[in-house]
Write a protein that binds this DNA or RNA. Structure first.
Length: 265
DNA sequence: AAGGCAGCCTGTAAGC
DNA sequence: TGCTTACAGGCTGCCT
């Protein structure tokens, strides 16, 4: 399931492949994959840049429009140079003038492709929280942001409207690294732990990006290669923590949460 | 208003 | 063996 590091990996690789190409057509093979919010011809423009906001992929076009892709859990963008049959779960294609194209493959069909003018961008991301790797995300921010939150710290960290980009896997890892129990009420996390939390969130994300992300079941890079951060996971999907303690597993907000009852208080 | 959770969807794996 | 059930989970929208 792609989280910030996986999306960043896709974005970096995508930029090399499609910046400078001109889109000719977007085809949809599964209903409601495309959510065009502009003139349908508007996406027929030159790709100038590929960037990321939270878990969203932004394809910038020369005509001041954006194609915004969200992979959700099982979405994949696969670059192809020669015409081929549809994959079993191919939901859409983005074609370029040179005949190359991007396949949007998504087993669970939750992924989406939006197209909108730049003027609508601010509204589109209006509610989205701070970028965790930016300077805006710091101790002062989290201290004020978290002050009135009584839900579990795990739920807080997963809330994209507060911090944009963390998913279930990295939240579990970060809480283990900082020794915070996932059920701790967010506003009861001690200042010292909160400072550590900021540091470790940035560290885990940076390390995972270095590894080209975590490959758990569905995620693949644009070239179908896998990331390697799963080799460094300490609790997610494990039975024991690195200290040898048996891990606990609880549902928080409907999500499986792995934690160490001894290391995390 | 904030928080909790069903629903969306399909493949895989476990259970009977 | 074959059927049923649980699980995976990001995000939206509904309900309290």
């Amino acid at each position: 399931m792609p989280e910030l590091p996986e999306v960043q990996t896709v974005v970096s690789e995508l930029a090399v492949l499609i910046v400078g190409k001109e889109i000719t057509e977007i085809e949809e093979y599964y209903p409601n994959t495309l959510r065009i919010r502009c003139e349908t011809e508007a996406y027929c423009s030159l790709v100038t840049e590929v960037s990321r906001r939270g878990k969203y992929i932004l394809i910038h076009l020369a005509n001041n429009h954006y194609i915004i892709v969200h992979l959700r859990m099982t979405g994949k963008l696969i670059y192809a140079e020669t015409e081929g049959d549809l994959l079993k779960h191919e939901r859409a294609r983005i074609y370029f003038t040179d005949g190359t194209y991007l396949r949007f493959d998504d087993v669970r069909t939750f992924g989406t492709i939006d197209c909108l003018p730049e003027a609508d961008l601010a509204q589109y991301f209006f509610k989205l929280g701070v970028e965790p790797l930016s300077e805006d995300f710091n101790y002062k921010y989290i201290k004020e942001n978290i002050a009135k939150i009584t839900s579990p710290i795990k739920s807080y960290l997963l809330d994209q409207n507060r911090i944009a980009g963390l998913g279930n896997i990295y939240v579990c890892e970060v809480l283990y690294r900082t020794g915070i129990h996932p059920l701790t009420k967010a506003n009861e996390v001690k200042p010292k732990q909160l400072k550590l939390l900021v540091t470790e969130i940035k560290a885990v994300l940076a390390e995972a990006i270095e590894c080209n992300g975590t490959t758990i079941s569905d995620y693949r890079r644009v070239d179908d290669k896998t990331g390697s951060f799963q080799n460094f996971l300490q609790v997610y999907g494990k039975d024991y923590c690195p200290e040898g303690h048996e891990l606990g597993k609880v549902k928080i907000g409907g999500r499986s949460t792995y934690f160490c009852p001894i290391c995390q208080k």
